[in-house]
Design a protein around this nucleic acid. Sequence first.
DNA 1: TCAGGTCCTGGCCACCCGGCCAGTTTCGCA
DNA 2: TGCGAAACTGGCCGGGTGGCCAGGACCTGA
Lengths: 123, 123
Amino acid sequence: MSADNAPEIVLSLEIDDPALADRLAALLGNVAGLRLAKPGEQAAATVVARDPRIMPEDIALTQRELDVLALMAEGASNKMIARRLGISVHTVKFHVGSLLDKLDATGRTDAVAHAARRGVIEL
Amino acid sequence: MSADNAPEIVLSLEIDDPALADRLAALLGNVAGLRLAKPGEQAAATVVARDPRIMPEDIALTQRELDVLALMAEGASNKMIARRLGISVHTVKFHVGSLLDKLDATGRTDAVAHAARRGVIEL
DNA sequence: TCAGGTCCTGGCCACCCGGCCAGTTTCGCA
DNA sequence: TGCGAAACTGGCCGGGTGGCCAGGACCTGA
């Protein structure tokens, strides 16, 4: 432990782009109070690449579709979603259908995976 | 843009812990060649918290279960999984059942979400 | 040798899912 | 004053899903 009350923050890097990784490592390596993690070491935080191509533009989902999507991601069935949102199963299926369409998915599992991939929802 | 040939790297922070976020922001804000993203701004990389509680110990999944899980995450139906793995639909359902059990999930969508959450699979 | 785990397969069945058709209301925008 | 988008509801139906039963083959370690 260091003498002062602020211990080092350990940062790990997860950057695919070698050039960016090098520059970040060089910059961050010289910051006092901050240290880059050794391989395998547990880090307090991680720097990950923000890949711009993931979100060309966010998919236009309505509020209701987002509600349904969130519950789908929790494994809720159409019936459970209907109960929670206070709407009929038919309406849920309507929204699910729109989601499958907009997310280009073949089923609800695929829809949740796609949405998570492009950051529409957080797992 | 700056005079030299190395443009600033824009970093965004996604840290729940306010103390850690503050310290990181203070440290990173003073690094030459690096800048923190303004709200809504597109960043080249993101600093995220490394949450240790995510993997207490990995769930013991057999190789076959991992095969099935990976295909499930792609939205494949039992029939498609069966064709791809060269086994019967019954066997797929058997493995899916084991996965639901081990992952404590109520359905295949929930199973994929759980698996992704604890890092068993990558979306 | 024998128990236990993994992997595989089959049948049966209630239920769920997704796609199709149809319709209504409400709201904001042109 | 339309007109479209969003939200909501209904019926119908083929196919998918998950839970239950049963069995056999293979390998490993006790």
